[in-house]
Nucleic acid binder design. Structure first.
Lengths: 158, 158
DNA sequence: CCGTATCCATTCCGATACTG
DNA sequence: CAGTATCGGAATGGATACGG
């Protein structure tokens, strides 16, 4: 039988899960927060097949989390942008990232990226300094507090 | 073909979704944070059939989010308690609740409950005062900030 | 009360092939 | 590049019946 809808639940947690409780949606939003807009970007990042990417993208648009616009590069295609409603999922992703960081082992060699909380995009140029003021170089690590971390990597699978 | 596992993903968000990305898990954790421990409590609260509740419960135990212990009431059965790992999902639920509160309409007449952040349980006795110091009574509402809110209701579906 | 065991319907995901 | 159209396999959810 069909899965029960929770869209009318009194609990806001349940209602949220009804909207973005599925697997791919949050990963798409994550990538969108990183600045991705084009179909092929999502496809490459997620390693998902076109048909289900299309389905998820359309579902997110239907729910007002993404919106389409003419592609910025002038091509005949559209791009997918987060709405305000979609951007506000940022907090959810921070919490998920933080939990995973602390409770699910990362594969060797993986790295985090920093996200600009104000502009809600990945920070591409960043100076990181240790407590003694020394500038950290590539390969060095430091602890960061929740809220500064949105989690990500440079691989193509998640 | 089979859904790809993200347990080895470099991104902590993806790893988290691999663990608790499914529908029921977070709702069970939510109820556990409210103090529920017994099979029948979850069953009644979620309105889920026994067989899938069993499946989800066991999965959560396997992943170290819940653990079983002899029932506190001395009966022959077990109860399910959150581990530290499970309790730390609190932040995720707060974020989900906050988003739903702001972006998914609540049905008429639904109410929120307050959660004690330190003990991570619902607050059963609570004085709520308006900015002028007046004590709010039943049926009155006020805005609360994220972090004070974990979302819930008094219905049996979510 | 707390499950286990079946059975069925639906949904979801992935591969592949095809199109403008 | 950005999809659409099928297809099959697998996991999921729900109903129900049964047992300790």
């Amino acid at each position: 039988m069909r899965r029960k809808s929770l869209s009318g639940a009194a609990c806001p947690i349940a209602r949220t899960l009804d909207v973005i409780g599925d697997w791919w949606s949050l990963l798409i939003v994550r990538d969108a927060l990183r600045g991705m807009r084009r179909f092929s970007e999502f496809e490459k990042s997620l390693g998902v097949s076109k048909n289900i990417l299309t389905r998820r993208l359309h579902a997110l648009v239907r729910q007002g989390i993404l919106e389409t616009a003419p592609a910025a590069d002038g091509s005949a295609y559209r791009e997918y942008r987060l709405t305000a409603k979609g951007r506000s999922l940022f907090q959810v992703l921070v919490a998920l990232g933080q939990w995973g960081h602390e409770n699910a082992a990362a594969p060797a060699g993986s790295r985090m990226i920093m996200v600009d909380r104000e502009h809600r995009r990945p920070v591409r140029k960043l100076e990181v300094r240790a407590s003694d003021g020394r500038l950290l170089g590539p390969g060095e690590t430091m602890m960061v507090r929740i809220g500064e971390l949105a989690g990500a990597s440079n691989t193509n699978q998640g």
